[in-house]
Design a protein around this nucleic acid. Structure first.
Lengths: 337, 337
DNA sequence: CTGAAAGCGCTTACAG
DNA sequence: CTGAAAGCGCTTACAG
């Protein structure tokens, strides 16, 4: 189309200076009503849109936030990012997303490009030395790393593991297996520690199988479980996906859930309630996590105040569905092994 | 920490002009070797990073692409966006994402902000008048709208429906129900048209139930199916989620898949192969779709060439798993209704 | 309430 | 091969 309309074009059309156009757009209160009307008319007539690069350069702030997540293809993040996007939009900030595993050089270039005012970091496994050197405000979300020394937000993962154990124990289960996430992941570690602690507090043995967050890890764990001499009557998995894989594979092996084994997942993804059986799981309020983290970051940016130091922890919430049931003394259930 | 390092600081440190620093960074070939080395040393020493706003303003191009998707929380998009992100990063472009349903004002502001060089549009339901006025290169992906008059990329949805029907017909099914997506959605329409055409070509009646893409829509469709006088022996659903809901609800109603009804999904989401039964479905190569669209857009941007006009259609690919089976003459299967 | 002017940090013809 | 200088399109003290 026509070459871009600049502020000078609008000023000419309205018969005012560019300063007045700029003020009309950013602080209408400073401009006389008649002038304002003339300017707005000129803006519509010309189809003027502010040039973000020029504004950013002049204001020395890009009005954008950067979301850094490991593996953007992971569906866990989509709802979180949608919530961040929503908060940012309402505050007039753009959202840029990048894969945090892109490589440190790439990441440094992105972070230091001056294109973002602040960062939401969903990855706890970046080099602490790099992250500590970032000069923008950063808020950690879900995952974390003490080496970053940053404020953040997450659910209380250890407490969540305790709630899971409480639920199973109340149902009479005493042999409980925890299929953990990847060993190097902070979430895995916190949940595993919470599990161990809750079991120990009850005087129960804490069986742990190093698993993973994936369907495949869950399916593999089913074989491990099935081969155990004195099979645990309940399993607490690292994630819903892991639980799905575990349950599906149990079914193939001739076992049924919860008849032969009760299963608790983690995350409460959209599908958890529709699975067969509907999955008992720890709910992660993804929209809330995204929104709350974004709000904290955005308000710090707008007020030009520091982010603060605290780590907000959301208390865990167990959603009880049908994959867990009361322990029944050995029924010789399961048609195979 | 220290106030941002500017190009002038690097120039001073290296004892050269800012022009030379700029050249060293963007066109090293133009600079003498010794000079280049000195500049690079100064860059490292000062920790200089280019200011994107200044560069963009000067170059008159932001080197970023904007991804517009309806409902970012939809997990269908995550893998696509990851692929786009990947291509863009390799080309040195940033990726900005926005919810395309944010409202036309917001959307116009984002699109016209000058922050993006080009757009990947995943939404076929925006006002054509608005989209046609956009002056940036836009490529449509997955969804489309003839009113936009834009180039794009998608799988051949009508052909996919035909492939589904072919598969079921080859298995001996003659009464096939199509649970369609939302009536106003182009994907629904194309698949529905393909279904109708394929059935008609075989002289079979084309039963269509207006459903939706969601689990809930699938569950509701199960009730409709169960209540049909002469129940179809096969169902082709709008999406995998819809198929999951349909199958789960069938199970609750006392039917089994594929014993009582064969089911074909659409999309081949990650979970499809792990569902019980593993779902026969049309594969959507999401990573490939994202990559291919991004590559086309990026190469047009880098070469400053037009995007071209074509609409690439990827041929459909049916993944046969266990939710479909050969038709067996009425077994009085299903324990209830 | 409004305007003239400086300057944000770059890049790139132009000149040498 | 290198530098001096203009200018990208804004915003905002400063002055009136």
């Amino acid at each position: 189309m026509s070459p871009r309309v600049r502020i000078a074009d609008v000023a000419a059309a309205a018969g005012v200076s560019t300063a007045t156009v700029s003020r009309t757009l950013s602080s209408p209160g400073l401009v006389g009503e008649k002038t304002r009307e003339r300017v707005m008319a000129a803006v519509s007539a010309t189809g003027y849109r502010i040039n973000a690069a020029a504004r950013d350069l002049r204001r020395q702030q890009p009005r954008a936030i950067l979301v850094l997540a490991p593996n953007l293809a992971n569906t866990f993040f989509s709802r979180i990012i949608a919530a961040i996007q929503d908060v940012a939009r309402q505050a007039g900030l753009a959202v840029q997303i990048s894969d945090s595993r892109a490589g440190t050089d790439v990441l440094e270039a992105i972070v230091q490009s001056g294109r973002a005012d602040g960062i939401v970091l969903l990855d706890g496994a970046l080099p602490p030395d790099m992250v500590r050197n970032w000069t923008l405000p950063v808020i950690q979300l879900c995952e974390w790393n003490d080496g970053y020394a940053l404020p953040g937000l997450r659910i209380d993962n250890a407490a969540a593991a305790r709630v899971a154990v409480d639920h199973l124990a109340a149902l009479g289960h005493e042999r409980i297996l925890h299929v953990s996430g990847p060993a190097e992941n902070v979430l895995s570690q916190a949940r595993q520690a919470g599990f161990r602690e809750a079991m120990t507090a009850r005087g129960l043995p804490a069986d742990i199988h190093d698993g993973g967050f994936t369907i495949e890890a869950g399916a593999a764990a089913a074989h491990v479980w099935a081969a155990m001499a004195d099979r645990p009557t309940a399993v607490f998995t690292a994630s819903d996906e892991c639980a799905f894989g575990f349950i599906s594979e149990c079914y193939r092996l001739g076992f049924e859930v919860p008849r032969d084994v009760s299963v608790i997942g983690f995350d409460d993804v959209d599908f958890a309630g529709h699975f067969i059986p509907p999955l008992t799981t720890i709910h992660q309020p993804r929209a809330r996590l995204g929104r709350q983290a974004a709000e904290r970051l955005v308000s710090a940016l707008l007020e030009d105040a520091p982010l603060g130091e605290g780590y907000d922890q959301i208390p865990p919430h167990l959603v009880i569905r049908s994959s867990t049931t009361a322990y029944r003394a050995k029924t010789q259930g399961g048609s195979a092994a």
